[in-house]
Simulated scan of single mutants.
Amino acid sequence: MSHERFYSRVNGPTLYRVNAVRWLDEVAPRHLAGGGDPRHVTEYLLASGWSNHSVPGYPHVLLESPDRRLHFTLEPEEDEFMSSRRVHPAQGHAWSAQFGIHTPVEIIAGFTDAVNSAGPRPEEAELWRLAASRGWTMRLAGRERAALSPDETAYLSRESSLAETPIHRWAVQVSVPLSEKRHRWIWNASIDEAAPPAALTGFIDALTDPTPLLRSEGQEPRHAFGFLDSRRSFVTPEQHRMQHLRRLEAAQRTGTNAPAPAPPLPRPARHKRHR
Protein backbone atom coordinates (compact mmCIF):
# COMPACT_ATOMS: atom_id res chain seq x y z
CA MET A 1 0.00 0.00 0.00
CA SER A 2 1.47 3.35 -1.05
CA HIS A 3 1.35 6.21 1.42
CA GLU A 4 4.10 8.53 0.15
CA ARG A 5 1.66 10.87 -1.59
CA PHE A 6 -0.38 11.45 1.58
CA TYR A 7 0.30 14.41 3.84
CA SER A 8 0.69 12.38 7.00
CA ARG A 9 3.09 11.78 9.85
CA VAL A 10 3.34 8.17 8.68
CA ASN A 11 5.70 9.50 5.99
CA GLY A 12 8.36 10.52 8.46
CA PRO A 13 10.43 12.26 9.36
CA THR A 14 12.32 9.67 11.40
CA LEU A 15 11.95 6.70 9.10
CA TYR A 16 11.11 7.90 5.61
CA ARG A 17 11.18 11.43 4.23
CA VAL A 18 14.23 12.45 6.23
CA ASN A 19 15.14 15.25 3.82
CA ALA A 20 12.14 17.22 5.09
CA VAL A 21 13.95 17.62 8.44
CA ARG A 22 16.98 19.87 8.61
CA TRP A 23 18.34 18.69 11.94
CA LEU A 24 17.65 16.73 15.12
CA ASP A 25 17.72 17.99 18.68
CA GLU A 26 19.02 16.17 21.75
CA VAL A 27 16.39 16.67 24.43
CA ALA A 28 16.83 16.22 28.17
CA PRO A 29 15.52 15.13 30.56
CA ARG A 30 14.34 12.21 28.49
CA HIS A 31 11.11 11.66 30.42
CA LEU A 32 9.90 15.09 29.20
CA ALA A 33 10.91 14.57 25.55
CA GLY A 34 7.41 13.61 24.38
CA GLY A 35 6.08 10.37 22.97
CA GLY A 36 8.13 10.27 19.77
CA ASP A 37 7.54 7.89 16.85
CA PRO A 38 5.64 4.74 17.98
CA ARG A 39 7.37 2.73 15.25
CA HIS A 40 10.43 2.69 17.49
CA VAL A 41 8.45 0.11 19.49
CA THR A 42 6.11 -1.50 16.98
CA GLU A 43 8.54 -2.04 14.10
CA TYR A 44 11.03 -3.66 16.45
CA LEU A 45 8.38 -6.08 17.71
CA LEU A 46 7.33 -6.88 14.14
CA ALA A 47 10.96 -7.47 13.18
CA SER A 48 11.22 -9.82 16.17
CA GLY A 49 8.42 -11.98 14.81
CA TRP A 50 5.34 -10.43 16.38
CA SER A 51 2.23 -10.53 14.16
CA ASN A 52 -0.06 -7.62 13.33
CA HIS A 53 -3.78 -8.09 14.04
CA SER A 54 -4.84 -4.46 13.60
CA VAL A 55 -8.30 -3.85 12.13
CA PRO A 56 -8.25 -1.74 8.92
CA GLY A 57 -10.11 1.51 9.32
CA TYR A 58 -9.75 1.69 13.12
CA PRO A 59 -6.99 3.81 14.70
CA HIS A 60 -5.14 1.21 16.72
CA VAL A 61 -2.31 -1.32 16.59
CA LEU A 62 -2.73 -4.89 17.86
CA LEU A 63 0.39 -7.06 18.00
CA GLU A 64 0.82 -10.63 19.21
CA SER A 65 4.05 -12.34 20.22
CA PRO A 66 5.33 -15.30 18.15
CA ASP A 67 4.25 -17.78 20.84
CA ARG A 68 0.83 -16.04 21.09
CA ARG A 69 1.31 -15.53 24.81
CA LEU A 70 1.62 -11.74 24.85
CA HIS A 71 -0.35 -8.87 23.38
CA PHE A 72 0.69 -5.27 22.72
CA THR A 73 -2.02 -2.68 22.05
CA LEU A 74 -1.65 0.93 20.99
CA GLU A 75 -4.86 2.88 20.67
CA PRO A 76 -5.96 6.46 21.29
CA GLU A 77 -7.97 7.27 24.37
CA GLU A 78 -10.42 10.15 24.66
CA ASP A 79 -9.00 10.86 28.10
CA GLU A 80 -5.24 11.39 27.84
CA PHE A 81 -4.93 10.45 31.52
CA MET A 82 -5.69 6.86 30.50
CA SER A 83 -3.07 4.46 29.21
CA SER A 84 -2.83 4.28 25.43
CA ARG A 85 -0.17 1.55 25.24
CA ARG A 86 -0.49 -1.78 27.02
CA VAL A 87 1.39 -5.06 27.23
CA HIS A 88 -0.21 -8.08 28.92
CA PRO A 89 -0.59 -11.85 28.63
CA ALA A 90 -3.02 -12.98 25.94
CA GLN A 91 -4.88 -15.11 28.48
CA GLY A 92 -5.47 -14.38 32.12
CA HIS A 93 -4.62 -11.30 34.14
CA ALA A 94 -1.35 -12.31 35.77
CA TRP A 95 0.22 -8.92 35.07
CA SER A 96 0.05 -5.85 32.85
CA ALA A 97 2.22 -2.92 31.81
CA GLN A 98 0.52 0.35 30.89
CA PHE A 99 1.95 3.58 29.49
CA GLY A 100 0.40 7.01 28.92
CA ILE A 101 0.38 8.63 25.49
CA HIS A 102 3.25 11.04 26.29
CA THR A 103 5.57 8.28 27.55
CA PRO A 104 8.69 8.45 25.35
CA VAL A 105 8.78 5.44 23.05
CA GLU A 106 12.44 4.86 23.92
CA ILE A 107 11.42 4.31 27.56
CA ILE A 108 8.58 1.98 26.56
CA ALA A 109 11.06 0.08 24.36
CA GLY A 110 13.16 -0.55 27.45
CA PHE A 111 10.29 -2.81 28.49
CA THR A 112 9.05 -4.21 25.18
CA ASP A 113 12.51 -4.95 23.75
CA ALA A 114 13.18 -7.29 26.67
CA VAL A 115 9.69 -8.66 27.32
CA ASN A 116 10.62 -12.11 25.94
CA SER A 117 14.13 -12.16 27.40
CA ALA A 118 14.93 -14.67 30.11
CA GLY A 119 16.71 -13.71 33.27
CA PRO A 120 16.50 -13.88 37.06
CA ARG A 121 14.22 -11.52 38.92
CA PRO A 122 16.30 -8.63 40.24
CA GLU A 123 16.28 -7.75 43.89
CA GLU A 124 14.30 -4.60 44.62
CA ALA A 125 17.41 -3.01 46.10
CA GLU A 126 19.23 -3.47 42.78
CA LEU A 127 16.66 -1.37 40.94
CA TRP A 128 16.83 1.40 43.54
CA ARG A 129 20.64 1.36 43.36
CA LEU A 130 20.40 1.75 39.59
CA ALA A 131 18.23 4.85 39.96
CA ALA A 132 20.40 6.28 42.73
CA SER A 133 23.58 5.80 40.69
CA ARG A 134 22.07 8.14 38.08
CA GLY A 135 21.24 10.95 40.45
CA TRP A 136 17.71 10.00 41.46
CA THR A 137 16.96 10.88 45.09
CA MET A 138 15.58 8.17 47.33
CA ARG A 139 12.34 8.98 49.15
CA LEU A 140 9.87 7.22 51.42
CA ALA A 141 6.24 6.96 50.29
CA GLY A 142 4.50 5.70 53.40
CA ARG A 143 6.00 2.28 54.00
CA GLU A 144 7.19 2.05 50.41
CA ARG A 145 10.31 3.46 48.82
CA ALA A 146 10.35 5.92 45.94
CA ALA A 147 12.82 7.93 43.88
CA LEU A 148 12.71 11.45 42.46
CA SER A 149 14.49 12.39 39.23
CA PRO A 150 17.31 14.96 39.38
CA ASP A 151 15.04 17.65 37.90
CA GLU A 152 12.23 16.63 40.31
CA THR A 153 9.64 16.12 37.56
CA ALA A 154 9.55 12.29 37.52
CA TYR A 155 8.56 10.14 40.49
CA LEU A 156 9.26 6.39 40.55
CA SER A 157 7.58 4.32 43.25
CA ARG A 158 6.87 0.73 44.20
CA GLU A 159 3.28 0.39 45.38
CA SER A 160 1.19 -2.40 46.84
CA SER A 161 -2.55 -2.94 46.75
CA LEU A 162 -4.65 -3.21 49.90
CA ALA A 163 -5.90 -6.67 48.99
CA GLU A 164 -5.50 -9.64 51.32
CA THR A 165 -2.78 -10.85 48.98
CA PRO A 166 -1.05 -7.58 48.01
CA ILE A 167 -0.15 -6.98 44.37
CA HIS A 168 3.04 -5.00 43.94
CA ARG A 169 3.61 -2.71 40.98
CA TRP A 170 6.12 -0.12 39.89
CA ALA A 171 4.63 3.25 38.96
CA VAL A 172 5.93 6.43 37.35
CA GLN A 173 4.31 9.87 37.50
CA VAL A 174 5.71 12.75 35.47
CA SER A 175 4.53 16.34 36.00
CA VAL A 176 5.86 19.89 35.88
CA PRO A 177 5.09 22.61 38.44
CA LEU A 178 2.75 25.44 37.49
CA SER A 179 2.78 27.17 40.85
CA GLU A 180 3.67 26.40 44.43
CA LYS A 181 0.75 23.99 44.84
CA ARG A 182 -0.26 23.14 41.26
CA HIS A 183 1.33 20.75 38.76
CA ARG A 184 0.66 19.91 35.13
CA TRP A 185 0.37 16.16 34.70
CA ILE A 186 2.37 14.83 31.71
CA TRP A 187 2.25 11.02 31.78
CA ASN A 188 2.22 8.01 34.04
CA ALA A 189 3.01 4.34 33.71
CA SER A 190 2.55 1.23 35.82
CA ILE A 191 4.10 -2.22 35.59
CA ASP A 192 3.03 -5.12 37.77
CA GLU A 193 5.97 -6.69 39.56
CA ALA A 194 4.89 -10.07 38.15
CA ALA A 195 5.85 -8.84 34.65
CA PRO A 196 8.92 -10.44 33.03
CA PRO A 197 11.89 -9.36 35.20
CA ALA A 198 14.17 -8.45 32.29
CA ALA A 199 11.47 -6.15 30.92
CA LEU A 200 10.95 -4.44 34.28
CA THR A 201 14.69 -3.90 34.62
CA GLY A 202 14.88 -2.62 31.05
CA PHE A 203 12.13 -0.09 31.71
CA ILE A 204 13.76 1.34 34.84
CA ASP A 205 17.12 1.39 33.07
CA ALA A 206 15.63 3.33 30.13
CA LEU A 207 13.70 5.67 32.44
CA THR A 208 16.68 6.66 34.57
CA ASP A 209 19.25 6.78 31.75
CA PRO A 210 20.57 10.38 31.65
CA THR A 211 21.27 10.20 27.90
CA PRO A 212 19.10 12.73 25.99
CA LEU A 213 16.65 11.58 23.32
CA LEU A 214 16.62 12.63 19.68
CA ARG A 215 13.66 14.61 18.44
CA SER A 216 13.02 16.35 15.13
CA GLU A 217 13.22 20.13 15.04
CA GLY A 218 10.10 21.56 16.60
CA GLN A 219 8.99 18.17 17.91
CA GLU A 220 9.71 19.02 21.55
CA PRO A 221 6.45 18.99 23.52
CA ARG A 222 4.90 22.32 24.43
CA HIS A 223 3.64 20.98 27.74
CA ALA A 224 7.25 20.81 28.98
CA PHE A 225 8.20 24.34 27.84
CA GLY A 226 10.75 25.83 30.22
CA PHE A 227 11.84 22.46 31.62
CA LEU A 228 13.81 21.08 28.67
CA ASP A 229 17.44 21.40 27.70
CA SER A 230 17.55 21.17 23.89
CA ARG A 231 20.80 21.02 21.92
CA ARG A 232 21.39 20.69 18.20
CA SER A 233 22.65 17.15 17.57
CA PHE A 234 25.55 16.15 15.35
CA VAL A 235 23.48 13.08 14.41
CA THR A 236 21.77 13.76 11.09
CA PRO A 237 18.22 12.60 10.26
CA GLU A 238 19.69 10.10 7.79
CA GLN A 239 22.08 8.70 10.41
CA HIS A 240 19.17 8.40 12.84
CA ARG A 241 17.15 6.51 10.25
CA MET A 242 20.06 4.14 9.61
CA GLN A 243 20.42 3.49 13.35
CA HIS A 244 16.77 2.48 13.42
CA LEU A 245 17.16 0.17 10.42
CA ARG A 246 20.22 -1.50 11.96
CA ARG A 247 18.20 -2.07 15.11
CA LEU A 248 15.47 -3.79 13.08
CA GLU A 249 18.04 -5.90 11.22
CA ALA A 250 19.50 -7.06 14.54
CA ALA A 251 16.03 -8.07 15.73
CA GLN A 252 15.42 -10.03 12.53
CA ARG A 253 18.74 -11.86 12.85
CA THR A 254 18.25 -12.91 16.44
CA GLY A 255 14.52 -13.52 16.31
CA THR A 256 14.37 -12.47 19.95
CA ASN A 257 13.68 -9.27 21.82
CA ALA A 258 17.29 -8.62 22.77
CA PRO A 259 17.92 -4.91 22.11
CA ALA A 260 20.75 -4.03 19.79
CA PRO A 261 23.33 -1.72 21.36
CA ALA A 262 23.29 1.76 19.92
CA PRO A 263 26.42 3.89 19.55
CA PRO A 264 26.67 6.76 22.03
CA LEU A 265 25.34 10.06 20.79
CA PRO A 266 27.78 12.97 20.63
CA ARG A 267 27.01 15.91 22.87
CA PRO A 268 27.48 19.20 21.00
CA ALA A 269 28.94 22.23 22.70
CA ARG A 270 26.94 24.77 20.69
CA HIS A 271 23.42 25.62 19.52
CA LYS A 272 22.09 25.23 23.02
CA ARG A 273 18.50 26.31 23.53
CA HIS A 274 16.50 26.22 26.74
CA ARG A 275 12.79 25.56 26.39
Rank of each mutant, 00 (worst) to 15 (best):
L200F: 01
L214D: 12
F203I: 03
L207T: 05
R222C: 03
L213E: 05
P210Q: 08
H223P: 07
A224G: 09
T201G: 07
L213T: 11
G218Y: 03
P210R: 07
D229W: 10
Q219S: 06
A199V: 04
G218Q: 03
G202F: 13
T211C: 01
T211M: 03
I204G: 11
R215K: 15
T208L: 00
P210T: 11
A206D: 03
A199Y: 14
L214P: 09
L207A: 06
H223N: 14
D209F: 00
E220H: 05
D205M: 05
S216E: 13
F225Q: 15
T211G: 01
E220K: 03
P212R: 00
L214N: 07
T208D: 07
F225S: 10
Q219G: 08
P221Y: 01
L207N: 08
T208R: 11
A206I: 01
R215Q: 10
R222W: 07
G218S: 06
I204H: 09
A199K: 15
G218E: 09
A206M: 01
I204Y: 03
G226A: 09
H223A: 14
L228F: 11
L214Y: 10
T208M: 02
F225N: 12
P212N: 04
T201Y: 07
T201E: 08
I204S: 12
T211W: 00
Q219E: 11
P212L: 07
L200E: 06
F203V: 03
F225T: 15
F227N: 09
I204F: 04
T208I: 01
H223R: 13
L207G: 04
A199N: 05
T201A: 15
D205P: 07
P212T: 12
T201S: 13
D229S: 13
P212S: 10
D205F: 02
L207V: 03
L200D: 01
L213P: 05
E217Q: 04
A199I: 10
T211F: 00
D205L: 04
L228N: 12
S216W: 08
T208G: 03
A198N: 01
L228H: 08
L214H: 13
A199S: 06
L214W: 12
T201C: 09
H223Y: 15
D209L: 00
R222E: 13
L200R: 09
D205N: 14
A199P: 02
A198C: 08
G226M: 12
I204V: 15
H223W: 15
L207W: 08
D229N: 14
Q219D: 13
R222N: 11
A206Y: 02
F225P: 08
F225C: 06
Q219L: 00
T201K: 15
R222Q: 11
P210D: 11
F225R: 14
G202H: 06
P212V: 12
S216Y: 04
F203T: 07
L207F: 11
E217A: 10
D209E: 09
L213F: 00
F203R: 12
F203H: 12
L228W: 08
